[in-house]
Design a protein around this nucleic acid. Sequence first.
DNA 1: CTTGCCTCTGACGCCAGCGTCAGGTTTTAG
DNA 2: CTAAAACCTGACGCTGGCGTCAGAGGCAAG
Lengths: 125, 125
Amino acid sequence: MTVTEAAAERLIRIGEVARGAGVSVRAVRYYEQQGLLIAERSPSGQRLYRQDTVTLVRFFQQMFAAGLTSRRIAELLPCWDTGHTDAEQRAMLRAERDRIQAKVDDLQAALDRLDEVIAITDTHP
Amino acid sequence: MTVTEAAAERLIRIGEVARGAGVSVRAVRYYEQQGLLIAERSPSGQRLYRQDTVTLVRFFQQMFAAGLTSRRIAELLPCWDTGHTDAEQRAMLRAERDRIQAKVDDLQAALDRLDEVIAITDTHP
DNA sequence: CTTGCCTCTGACGCCAGCGTCAGGTTTTAG
DNA sequence: CTAAAACCTGACGCTGGCGTCAGAGGCAAG
């Protein structure tokens, strides 16, 4: 990103990204298709990624686990790329946050109910 | 369920169950198909449910929201019907509990990351 | 009687995040 | 040089909890 980057960063191929992030190669291709990743190409057509792509993919997984769609993630990508957002994006961020918080509450309630049942069935052989 | 039940409980039809639990009629039929509900039938073939079915359906929704499949719920139904469980069921209960707990942790982590971004983008117009 | 709402049984559709197979090229290890 | 491993581009399949349409019967009110 700075001028010192002239010390060209070593690029990695898709398999290394996948192993590094703990996902399948297919998944990484899918992310590209959804506009989440952009890859350079080697002369023969193989995808080449920067090393921090691994971190990015892990982040995608985290967001997927939180219920965001790839579309939403793509729409919000500029936020952590540039740190800048417009009003619409801020609204989306808040909406997702609230949705996740609600889901956490739901899960916690479900957890409590299961724990009830477990407690009962343990004392009730 | 006791003898006093002779004062026959009023049975309700599928629409009332659906409205009461806040789900679609289609969903209630689906639950029956998956073995989660058993309905009596009127002479003309209409499904008739006990009133507490509404509560049961709400419970299903809670478990679905927690990521349990209808199959799992069906396998665990005896637990809260009879209060009795075998070793296998107890193991499943614990497994689901742990899975949900892990999911809560994941969601919480995602929430924290989103909050980070929100904080940054708020101070960074 | 008929109007209008509720219910019935199939059965196909949908979405999202991949899995997986096919058939071919490229890179790497020995 | 060769074989294995890794990569490529399509393109169809899968899962689960329903939505939805089709076509037909049931039931209280006016």
